[in-house]
Design a protein around this nucleic acid. Structure first.
Lengths: 364, 364
DNA sequence: CTGAAAGCGCTTACAG
DNA sequence: CTGAAAGCGCTTACAG
C-alpha cells in the first residue's frame, strides 16, 4: 500500500463517500455526529476516516459556517513582557469560550484583513486610531483595543479596556512622596510634546515643584537637544507611523541612564515609562556605579512577569496585564457574538511594592 | 445615506456586479487586474468597490486558491525572549517571500489543524516528536521544527534547523577553562535523567573532574532529592506532556540560586540552561549577597535580546536566534513551494562575551 | 435513514 | 470584451 505523503492530495469527504459507497451528505452527518446515519455505515465511515487520516478542511468549514472561532491579537512589540502577559490572558479567556487567539506582529497593517479571524484586538490607542482611519469605512470585522489613557481621535469609536496611565502616574508621584521624595524626575521614550498620558501627568504635577527647571528633570529620549517645535516636527516625521520604529525600550532606558549621570541630577527618584525601559535604565546605572535604590529610586508602570528576574525587584504601579488581556478577549468575543458591551471599561490600578524605592522618611 | 455598520452584511463581488450591471466574472477581473474588462466598466467597478469599502473575503480566496500564504509558529512559551527573537526572524524572512507569520501559544495541539495556514513551524524537538506521533499518518500540511540537539524519536522525519546544544555546552566548558575555571557546575530546569543535550554534555565532560561527587554540582531543579529512578518516574508523569507545565525558567533560576548557596559550593562557575533561567538565578544570587562574577561566574545559552538589560551582561554561547528564525521560515516556505530542501541544517555556534565570567588566570 | 441540490465568496477556462 | 458554468470542501434543509 502506498503511504500518503506530502505529494498526495489531501483526502476529502468526497473520497470517503466514494469508498464507503454513500453520498457526501451521509459522510458529513457521520463525521459531525448530526442527523441520521445507519449504524453500519457510520462505523465504516469513521474507520475509513481514521485509516486514511482524514482531517476536515478548516478553510471550507469557515467559509460555510461564517465563523472561524479564531481571533487575532495585533501587536508589533512582543519584546515587551507586558504584551506577552496580555496575550496569555487573552488565550485563557478565549479558550473558555471556544476561541483560539492568533498573534501577529507584521510590520504593517497591509495584510491584516487577510487573516481569517472573527475579530481583532489592537494593542494600543494609536493602533486603534490608525486602524479606524484606514478601515473605518468598511467596518464589518469586530475590533477592540487596549488603551493606556492616551488621547487619540478615533474616527470610529472602538471599544476599549483601559489602563489609565494618567491616574497611574499620579499614583506613582503620591507613592514616592509618601516615601519622602520631593524631586521626582521622569524618563520616557518619547519627546515631551507627545500626547503620552504618563508624561503629561508628570508635567502637570511637577511643574509646581520644578517651575522653569521642569525639563531638566525630564528624560525624554528623542531629540532632547532640539527645541520643542523642531522636536515635534522631527518626531512626527518618524514616529507618527507606529510601524516605522522598532520599540527598543531597553536602549532608551540606557540612554536615560546616561542622561541622568551626565546631568548630575539632584532628583532622588525617577518615574520610568515602563518596566522594559526601567530594566535597561537600571542595568546601565549599575554599570556606571549608581546604586538603585540607594542613590536613586525607580518606579515604573506595567508590573510584568519579569519584575523579579531583575535585581532590585521593581516597584510598579500597574494593572494585572493578564487580567486586561482576559477582559479584552471577552469584550471582543461579546462583540462578535452580538452581546451588549460597554464601550469603555477602566481597570483598577494598584501599587506593587518592590525593592527599587528607598524610604527617605527613615533618614531622619 | 445609511452608513455601513457591524450589523450590515459584508459587501461581496456579487453586490458590486449587480450595482454595476455586469457579471461577477467581470468584477473579479477588474478587481484582480487580470483578463479583459472594458475601461468604463472597470472604472465604475473600482469606484463602487471604493465607495462601499469592499474588501475581499480571505477565506473564500484561500479555499479557491489553495494557498493562504500564511504560516504558523507554534510555541507555547513566549515569555522566553529566545522564542520572541526566533519569531521576529521568521517575520522578516517570510515577508520577503510574501508570507505572513501567525503565532499561537494555545495550551495544546487540539485545534492546531483548524488554523488556516500553509504550514507550521514547531518550536522544539519534543513538539516535533509529539506532532509526528499525533498527526504523522495524515502528513499533508508541511511542518518544520527548531531543534536543540535533543534526541527525540520522530515517527516521521520533520526537517529541522538545529542549534546543537551538546556542542554549545562543550564550548561553554572550554571557554570557562580558558578563563581558569576548573570546578564548573550546571544548573538546569530538568532532572539529570532527562535527555537534554546540555545536561548530557556537562555530565559526560565533568564526570572526569568531579567523579562520584558529580551530582553535587548538578543543580537540576526537579525532584533533586529523589533517587534517579524515582525521579525519572515522577518526571515522566508530569513532564512528558509538554503542555502540562508552564515553563517558569525565572522561578527555576531562583531555586538554582538557593541550592547554590545552600550547598555552599566550591564551584567557581555555573553553566546555566538558558538566558531566562540565568536572569532569575543571578537576580536571586544578588539578593542573597552573592556577587556575579566575583564570587561565581555564569555562562548561559541563547544570546537573547535581553542580555544587556541585566547587570552584569551575560556571557552567552549561542546562535543568532533571529537567524535561526529566518532559516526556519525559509525552510518551511521551500517545503510549501516544493523546492528541494535539506532535512537537517546546523547553525554555527559562537561565544558572545559579557561581564558575567571572571578571568581567574589573572589571579596569579 | 438517504442523497441531490443550493449555497458560503471567490476564480478561471471557455464558448460566445 | 463578456458571462454562464464548474469548482475549491464543506453544510443543511428538503423531498423521497
Amino acid at each position: 500500500m502506498k503511504l500518503p505523503s506530502t505529494d498526495d492530495k489531501k483526502i476529502t469527504r468526497k473520497d470517503i463517500a466514494e469508498m464507503a459507497g454513500v453520498s457526501v451528505s451521509v459522510v458529513s452527518r457521520a463525521l459531525n455526529n448530526s442527523g441520521y446515519v445507519e449504524q453500519g455505515k457510520k462505523q465504516k465511515i469513521l474507520s475509513l476516516a481514521k485509516q486514511y487520516g482524514y482531517t476536515p478542511h478548516p478553510v471550507a468549514m469557515t467559509l460555510q459556517q461564517v465563523r472561524s472561532r479564531q481571533i487575532l491579537f495585533f501587536c508589533k512589540d512582543m519584546q515587551n513582557p507586558f504584551n506577552v502577559d496580555l496575550y496569555y490572558g487573552m488565550i485563557e479567556a478565549a479558550q473558555l469560550r471556544g476561541y483560539l487567539v492568533l498573534f501577529n506582529a507584521a510590520i504593517n497593517f497591509d495584510r491584516i484583513r487577510d487573516i481569517m479571524v472573527d475579530g481583532i484586538i489592537l494593542q494600543n490607542d494609536r493602533l486603534a486610531s490608525i486602524y479606524a482611519e484606514q478601515y473605518g469605512k468598511n467596518y464589518f470585522l469586530p475590533v477592540v483595543a487596549a488603551s493606556f489613557g492616551n488621547q487619540e481621535k478615533n474616527a470610529v469609536s472602538i471599544p476599549i479596556v483601559e489602563f489609565d496611565m494618567y491616574e497611574a502616574c499620579i499614583r506613582a508621584i503620591e507613592y514616592l512622596r509618601k516615601n519622602g521624595h520631593r524631586n521626582i524626575a521622569y524618563a520616557g521614550p518619547y519627546p515631551r510634546t507627545d500626547n503620552n498620558a504618563r508624561s503629561i501627568a508628570w508635567q502637570n504635577t511637577m511643574r509646581n515643584v520644578f517651575k522653569d527647571r521642569l525639563y531638566d528633570y525630564f528624560y525624554g529620549i528623542h531629540y532632547s537637544e532640539l527645541g520643542p517645535m523642531e522636536e515635534l516636527k522631527k518626531f512626527r516625521a518618524d514616529y507618527m507611523n507606529p510601524f516605522s520604529v522598532e520599540e527598543t525600550y531597553f536602549e532608551k532606558g540606557k540612554i536615560a541612564a546616561n542622561l541622568i549621570v551626565q546631568r548630575n541630577t539632584d532628583a532622588t527618584a525617577v518615574i520610568c515609562f515602563n518596566d522594559e525601559m526601567a530594566f535597561g535604565m537600571i542595568a546601565q546605572l549599575q554599570r556606571m556605579g549608581v546604586r538603585v535604590p540607594d542613590d536613586i529610586s525607580v518606579v515604573s508602570f506595567d508590573c510584568t512577569n519579569q519584575r523579579d528576574a531583575h535585581y532590585p525587584t521593581l516597584t510598579d504601579i500597574g494593572v494585572n496585564p493578564r487580567y486586561q488581556g482576559e477582559r479584552l478577549a471577552n469584550l471582543l468575543i461579546d462583540k462578535i457574538e452580538r452581546k451588549k458591551i460597554a464601550y469603555i471599561s477602566k481597570l483598577p490600578i494598584k501599587v506593587f511594592p518592590g525593592d527599587s524605592v528607598k524610604n527617605r522618611n527613615a533618614l531622619v
